[in-house]
Structure formats: structure tokens, C-alpha cells
Design a protein around this nucleic acid. Structure first.
Lengths: 196, 196
DNA sequence: ACAATAAAAGAACGATCGGTCTTTTATTGT
DNA sequence: ACAATAAAAGACCGATCGTTCTTTTATTGT
């Protein structure tokens, strides 16, 4: 342990809580005071550790990608089920998460793209990069599936990756637009038709 | 003309300009000063005419619905082309609009849902209502199309309305997530498959 | 015990926020 | 000409914004 007064809150914990707050409220509507209250970390330390509000947001978004988005997709990639079952699971998992009132609604990456694309282009671009990572994971999955003959190649892997990766954006936004379980079920059923 | 000093800016013009600014920048990131500068209307008059910031936003969103969303869908309803052509036109029109750098990106209603659903629930609910109007228009269209035998009824009108109305949300968000023309084309081609 | 270290605690910064109020100016009806 | 009207013009409000600074306190190494 280094010299000096010990931290009240570990940076990792603070980042986790900041992520959830930004995810729920967005960039502009979340104030530094909100973040101090939520994380329990004192204001000066927030600036010391995370540089400034934008720095904290960037790290929160990276934390979301590393701890939620990427593991989620890796779960997909490693599934031993059929392609249809795997993709359907992915879509319904998003639906379930979106309808879970405990969680912040939507996807942090989508929220960022929509809110920040015009007003904070660097945050928008950062988010676009994470969208690309998700699409690349889908691409890898479909390339493998087609190569192994698990699905017939009616579309290229690139097309399938584009389509299903993009469904993440839609499903994440649906709850915010007022959709309930029934509307989610209808939508997922129809989107799955692309694999029939 | 009533007594008193005449308006520098007509309320209708101010509303139009306020709408575009809110649409582009969002609720929180748009300040009253921004609105004064953009509309040319003095601050006191903005408050006199539109009550407050939220009142102006509500009216701007209504203006968007009445002047952009509803006419757009009415154009759809009155199309004499085939269902597939009509729907494809609707989707590609959104893609074109989204890729047009002149326009604010995305759909004002979607932006509102995503930004405000958690932090300003009344604005979120207002937006949900307009989403419902759009879905109802699609419902009417597909009910009519199926009744007249213009498409085979593989899905109920409700399901088709849900699916294609929801594509609006996705397509509007795609540009914000960094999509280019090619990705739009791929996506639209695949979404159209639901009508094959 | 004591210097060095580093975070907590919280005061303080100028800028801007949404919103109101007073004063001036332009118009209409008489 | 002149009272009535209503918007323009802009000063002004307290609160809050993001950010920095100083002071106090808790810890480590000697």
C-alpha cells in the first residue's frame, strides 16, 4: 500500500457507479454533483482520477464495452446451440434486459450515439467504434457458421452481421419508445425470419 | 392587426427554428440563449409565447409530428405503387434523409425518447404517443392492403405495422451510430425480406 | 517521533443555467 | 395629439454548472 491517506472509494467501484448513472441519465443531464453523490468519491478525487467529466464518461463507456457488451457477445460466440437458437437467445436477452426495471434502460452505446453524435462528436465517434466491435463479433460468428455449413448462405456474413448487430440498436431503443413485452415478442419473431 | 409593437419574429417561424435546434442538439444541450440566438425572438417573448423551455420543447415536438412525421406517413398511405415498392420507398427515404448532412440527423421523436425517457418522463410519454400515431398509420395501411389482397397475409396487419414502424427507430439511429450509405442499403434490402 | 505523501473536506472560481422584471419603443384606436 | 397596448431590449435573479484551490487528516517509511 502506498503512502498517504487511503481512498474512501476504489476507482473501480466509482467507475462502475458512474457508468450506471451516465447510462441512465445521459451525459448532459448528469452533473458532477450527481456523480459525487452516487460514487461516494470526493470531487477533487474524481478529477484527479478521471481527469474531467468527459474523461470519466469516456472511461465509463469503455467500462461498459469491456464488462457488458463484449462479454455478452462472447457468450454468443461460444454458444453450442444452433444459429437460430443462439441469435434468438441474443435478441430475447436484450428484450428481457430492456424490460427489466432494475437496469438503466437502453444500451449505453446507443444512448451515447443518439445524444452525443451532434453535440460531442468525439464521444459519438468513440461510441461508433464500440458499435463496430460488436458488428465485428457478429461477423466472426456468421463467417464461422457459414463455413461450417450450420446455415445456408442466403446472405453474406457481412450482411447478416450488419442486420443482427443493428437489431441491438432497435431493441435497446424500443423500451424507451414505450414498448411492452408483447411488442418485443412480435418484433423478435419477425426479425428472426431473416434466418429462415 | 392588434395594437402594440409588432413582433420581430412570428411565433410560427420561431417554433420552426426552435424545433430544428432541439432536434439537432437535444433538450439539455440546448440553452435558452441558443434558442434566442437561433429564433431571433427575444427571451421575454419566448417565455410569453411558449411558457417555458419544456413548453417550447413540447410544442416543437408537436410541430415535428404535425409537419414532418404525419405528412410523411400520409404520403405513404396514399401511394398507388405496390406494397413492396411503397415500403421500400419509405425506408430508403429515411435512409436518404438520415444521410443528408443538411438535416439534423435522426428522428426528433426517437431522439426525445432516448434522451428523455428516464430524465423527463412526461417528454418521453409525449414522444411515445407520437410513435403510436405512426404505428397506427402503418396499421391502417396494412389492414387496407391485406383486405384488398395486395399482399398475402403471412403476418397480421398489427405485426407488419409494428415491424415497419419500428424500422423508423433503427434507421433514424443508424447514422448517429456511424453508418454510411452502403450499410443503409444492406440493411434496407434485408428488412424488406419480411414482405417476400 | 517525524518528514513525506496523498486523499478527504470543502471553500471558492467565473460562467452559464432557466426564468423574471423594468424600461424603452413601436404600433393602434380615438 | 394622445392614451392604451404589447413587444423589444436588456438588466437582473438565485441556482447550478464544471473546475480548481487550500486546508485538514490519515497513512507510510524512516
Amino acid at each position: 500500500m502506498p503512502a498517504g491517506r487511503p481512498r474512501k472509494v476504489a476507482p473501480e467501484e466509482a467507475l462502475e457507479k458512474a457508468m450506471k448513472l451516465f447510462w441512465r441519465k445521459g451525459y448532459d443531464a448528469t452533473s458532477i454533483s450527481d456523480l459525487v453523490e452516487e460514487t461516494g468519491m470526493v470531487k477533487a478525487s474524481l478529477y484527479k482520477v478521471f481527469r474531467d467529466k468527459k474523461g470519466l464518461y469516456e472511461q465509463a463507456l469503455g467500462h461498459y464495452n469491456d464488462n457488458l457488451s463484449v462479454p455478452w457477445i462472447n457468450g454468443l460466440l461460444q454458444s453450442k446451440s444452433s444459429v437460430k437458437e443462439t441469435i434468438k437467445r441474443y435478441l430475447t436477452d436484450i428484450a428481457n434486459a430492456s424490460l427489466n426495471a432494475e437496469r438503466p434502460s437502453g444500451c449505453f452505446m446507443v444512448n451515447t450515439s443518439v445524444e452525443c453524435a451532434s453535440t460531442a462528436p468525439d464521444l459519438g465517434n468513440l461510441s461508433s467504434g464500440y458499435h463496430d466491435i460488436r458488428r465485428q463479433a457478429f461477423l466472426k460468428y456468421f463467417q464461422d457458421a457459414i463455413q461450417k455449413g450450420k446455415i445456408e448462405a442466403r446472405y453474406t456474413p457481412e450482411e447478416l452481421a450488419e442486420f443482427f448487430s443493428d437489431q441491438t440498436i432497435l431493441l435497446a431503443s424500443l423500451a424507451k419508445a414505450g414498448a411492452d413485452r408483447k411488442r418485443y415478442d412480435t418484433y423478435v419473431k419477425m426479425a428472426m425470419e431473416i434466418l429462415d
